[in-house]
Amino acid sequence: MTEVARQTVDDTRAVFSGLANGAAHTVTVSATSEFGTSKTTDSVPAKPVKVASQDRYAQAVRDYFEARAALLKGTHTTAEKAAAASPHAAMFRDLLAGQAPDLILTREAHARHGRHFSQVEATLDDLLTGPGPDDTVVVRGRVAERTVLTDKDGDQEPEEGEVPGRFVFADGVLRMEADDAAVEVTMPTDEAAAQAATVAPPAEDSLADIVSPEDEGLPIELDADGMLVDDPAAAGPPLAYAAPNHSGTASWAKRHVSIGWDHSNDCANIVSKALHHGGKMKIRKGPSRNLKSWYRGKIFSKRVDSFT
């Protein structure tokens, strides 16, 4: 067996380029931590396969990013106009049309609050394009996103994020976008794995002793757009309230203590989920790093409603 490439990464993913299409390759993996290095594990043999016109698929994804950015910034006001700016419009027009209403509503909501997206960018790197199931083509890569909200006074709220993206084309048309890391997770189903699984204990019949009413915060005033009210005395639409249900929050948290993580550091995120799903706290729109927002509804098309 001949070693053709070697990498050391800080993630659970690595991209190897320059492999011979059609030749069987085996990946050998070991992990290193403060406790030492594990034994190696070998994958089953896999053969890289070249997809015809693979550059066209990657460019379609990049143009799709540009079209979404145009809708958020207001460069184009309809999905059809945003898609028409790309020679690959036919490859992503349908998916963009499905997302357009939410993107436009987000832009309009921020406009009502004197804010606009001054910058919306997304890049696609570390590409892998290959055949998928049922004659699909799958484009995988590292998606780095950056948005900047600018208010009427010129103050800016930058937001950055990076996810492993998966884009599935069927009959040459982009049909699905997903987090590649989430798609790749496969849970074992044998008896030993089931016995080793951690199961959350049932919630108590009464949770009144966990959070007393006097310890609860005051209701948070939100406007009709689900955004924080900067000046409660200002004239405007009726206010909504986002005070969480304390017993529901605690009950949801206890029942879902072993829920899967959405982010590499997930401690605040699980609290957000408990407040929203169990406490019925209303989701606010806005970038996750804006201290006035607990929940981020969407960055482009990705729903991460409980991100804190």
Rank of each mutant, 00 (worst) to 15 (best):
L127Y: 01
A203W: 02
G132P: 05
A192H: 12
K280F: 08
A196M: 09
G141P: 01
A170V: 03
A208P: 04
V51K: 01
A243S: 14
V229Q: 05
V143D: 09
V44W: 02
A233C: 08
F35H: 13
E145S: 09
A242D: 12
V120C: 15
K81H: 05
H76V: 01
A52N: 06
L127W: 01
M281T: 14
E159M: 11
A23S: 14
G141S: 09
R62L: 05
V51D: 01
V271D: 01
S17G: 14
Q54N: 08
M176I: 06
R289V: 14
F35L: 11
S258M: 13
V49T: 15
H246G: 04
F167S: 00
A170E: 06
A109P: 01
M176Y: 13
D190L: 02
L174W: 01
K292E: 14
A194E: 14
V168F: 03
D94K: 07
V29W: 07
L239W: 13
R112D: 15
E214K: 04
L222I: 06
C267Y: 09
V139S: 03
A253V: 02
A46C: 03
G114K: 09
S301Y: 15
D11K: 03
K50H: 04
P201D: 11
A31I: 12
G248A: 05
S33K: 06
F92M: 01
K302F: 11
A24C: 09
T147H: 02
N21W: 00
T77H: 07
L124C: 05
G98E: 10
K285V: 13
A67V: 05
L103T: 07
A70E: 02
T75Y: 02
G217R: 12
N245F: 08
E145C: 03
E80Y: 01
E160W: 00
P201M: 11
E214A: 10
P87M: 00
P287V: 10
R175H: 06
V211E: 03
R6W: 02
K50F: 00
G236L: 10
A70W: 00
P48M: 08
V185R: 15
G22K: 04
E108A: 12
P219D: 12
F65A: 03
A100G: 03
D135R: 11
L174S: 02
T147D: 02
R68Q: 15
P158V: 06
Q7D: 10
H76Q: 12
A235D: 15
S301E: 15
T150Y: 05
P202N: 08
P133M: 01
G260W: 03
A194P: 00
A24H: 13
D179T: 07
M176L: 07
V211M: 06
L19W: 05
A235S: 15
T106R: 08
V257Y: 14
A89E: 04
D134E: 13
E159P: 00
A46F: 05
P287N: 10
V229H: 08
G260Q: 10
L128I: 15
R166N: 06
E160R: 12
S43R: 05
